[in-house]
Design a protein around this nucleic acid. Sequence first.
DNA 1: AACAACCCCGTCAATAGATC
DNA 2: GATCTATTGACGGGGTTGTT
Length: 361
Amino acid sequence: RIAPVIVSGVTVENTTLHNKGEVERLGMSIGDKVRVVRRGDVIPKIIEVLGRATVGDLKGRTHSDGSPFNQELPEASEIIVPTKCPRCETTLAVDGAFLKCINLDCPSRLERTILYWCRKLELDGIGEKLAEQLCSSGLVSSLADLYRLDERKRELLSLDRMAEKSANNLLKELENSKSMTLSMFISALGLPRIGPEIATLICSEVETLEELIDMLQHREEAVERLVKIDRIGEVVANLLLDGISDRKESIIDLYSKIIIVEGRKTISQGTLNGETFCITGTLSRPRKEIALSIKAQGGKVVSSVSGNLDFLVSGDSSGSKMEKATRLGVKIIGEDQLDDLLGGGILTDIPKPRQSTLGEF
DNA sequence: AACAACCCCGTCAATAGATC
DNA sequence: GATCTATTGACGGGGTTGTT
C-alpha cells in the first residue's frame, strides 16, 4: 500500500510488487518513497525507489473520494519475505518466481477456487465477500457445496447482506449455470496452467471425465497419450493429472452435481473459419455480443494483438492496441466491415437478449 | 427515502513458463 | 528463439440489494 497519489487521472493506493525478486530488484523497504506509473495507463507499477519518505511527503494527500489520508509514516524497516501462509500457516513452497501455499484446504484457496469457478462460468452474484462468508460460515467447503445451497436456504439467508431477493438470484444463477461442456468444467476447476485453451485441447482427445479419471491408474500411458496432442507437453500433462488426482474425490462429487453437455462440434463452420479477431475501442454493441457473433461464424476472439492476428476490430477511441496493430501490419477493420465479413448473419447469430420487460408484461 | 455495501465491468500490459 | 497461454492487478462507474 502506498499513500494516495494521483497517477494519470486516478488515485492510486495499492500497487503490487509481484514477487520476492521484484522487491530485491528494486531494493525497497517499508517507508520508502517510490515512483509509480500506470502500465498502459491502467495498472500501477512501482518503477523506482526514491529513498526514504518523510512526514512532509504525506502532507495534503486525499483518498479518491476527497477524504483526507491520515495514516502515519511507518517506521523504516526491511520487507520480510514470509515463509508461512498468512492464512493457514502452512509452509510456503517456491514455485518459480512465486511463493505458494500448497495446502489444498487453505481457506484462502477455497475462496479463490470458488471465485474462479464462478467467473469462468459467468455465474454472477458471488464476489469476494460472499465467497468469504460462504466459506467461513461453513456453508460451503467445496465447489460441490455451492450446488447444495438450495437445501440450506435458511442458513444462506442468515449471511450478511443476504435477504430473500439476493438468495433467490443466487440460487437461480447456480441452477442456470449447471450445464457446461467438459472443457468448461476442466478449465473452471482452476488447475494451474490449465485454462480454456488447454482444456479444449485435452477434450479433443479425452471425451469424458470418467475416461480422464481412469487414466490416472496408468500414469505413464496417460502422459504419453496427452503429450501426443499438439501444444501439450510433459509438464502440462503432469500438471493436469496431478491436479485431478489431488482433488479426485471433490471433483467426482462436483461432477455429480452438474450436467455435462456436448460441445459444439460445428465450431469451425462458417465464413470466418479460423480467422482471429481482437476487439478494441468503443463499439455500438457490447463486446460480448460481437465476440459471440464472430465465434458463431467460426472465428476466434483473442484479447491481445500479435503478429498472427488477422483482424483488429476497432471502435472509437481505441488506444495502444490500434498502435500495435498498425506497427505489426495487422488488418484493422471497423464494425461495418465486420458486418460484411459476418455476411449479414449478425442479427441471427447472437443469442436473444434477456426479455425481462416486454415479454413478461 | 437515503445511504452503504457489494458486485460487475471495462480498461490493458507485463510477466513467467511451456511448447515447438 | 519465437510464439503462445494463463494469470494478475488497480481503479472508478454503474447497477442492485440490504439496512437504517
